[in-house]
Design a protein around this nucleic acid. Structure first.
Length: 226
DNA sequence: AGAGTCAAACAGTTCT
DNA sequence: AGAACTGTTTGACTCT
């Protein structure tokens, strides 16, 4: 492989493009302090919809989790079980009620929706085919997944952003390797020059041309003719 | 649409 | 064992 092939990514080595924006650790705050800031009145309608979905999914998530937690499985298997039971979750999502889950919503703390395995698979498949959706495709997919079109839209936005981030990380690693290789090569060549110079000083036996006809370039220190 | 960000959910590790 | 802490993933939002 040629260096140009590796290095021609069109990227600049800016540190801001490399840093991971998600690496901000936070202590888990108390639920009462977790009020999302919602300032724009114009978006309240859609947010109410989103909240409703979250609340609904919370009920279902809890139901799925409580079953798994009663067993002796590890946390990861709990998650897997929840994903496996996605079909039930999906069914219940459609006809869920809010009334019997008021303890969860005390203080207005909002739980986060997690997509089921099936929903994720379908979204991933769609993304593989096309990374952007037409409004029509969005509608169809939302209906198929029993989600709000807005949720599908947001999922695609996030997916694009995170794909790009991963790609950037891969390219950064490639450029880093490329840079290291070039540095090594540069070091090696400098050393070689020094050795040749030393050799030249020690035994200039090969100079056959009369010294008077030769000139030395002051910058590159090469010997040339007149 | 993309970038930046927040925060819930989850996973792994350390401490008691 | 389980509480506490730390780090990661991901759904959702705002701003440009």
């Amino acid at each position: 492989m040629v260096f140009e092939d590796i290095c021609n990514t069109g990227l600049t080595l800016g540190s801001t493009a490399i840093s991971n924006p998600q690496n901000h650790s936070k202590k888990k705050p108390s639920s009462s302090s977790l009020k999302p800031n919602r300032s724009k009145i114009g978006q309240i309608g859609s947010k109410i919809d989103a909240c409703k979905v979250d609340v609904e999914s919370t009920v279902l998530y809890r139901q799925a989790s409580s079953v798994s937690l009663s067993s002796s499985h590890s946390l990861s298997s709990v998650k897997r079980e929840r994903e496996i039971s996605g079909e039930e979750v999906e069914e219940e999502r459609a006809g869920s009620k809010l009334s019997d889950d008021q303890d969860d919503q005390e203080g207005g703390a909002r739980k986060k929706l997690r997509l089921t395995k099936e929903q994720s698979v379908i979204l991933e498949d769609s993304f593989k085919e096309q990374s952007t959706l037409t409004p029509k495709q969005k509608q169809v997919l939302a209906k198929q997944l029993n989600l709000q079109p807005r949720q599908v839209e947001v999922w695609f936005q996030n997916r694009r952003a995170r794909t790009k981030l991963k790609q950037t990380e891969v390219e950064y690693e490639l450029l880093k390797k490329c840079c290291e290789t070039l540095t090594d090569e540069n070091r090696r060549l400098h050393k070689e020059i020094q050795e040749l110079k030393a050799l030249n000083v020690a035994a200039p036996f090969y100079v056959q041309i009369p010294a008077a006809t030769l000139t030395m370039c002051p910058s590159c220190e090469r010997i040339g003719g007149t």
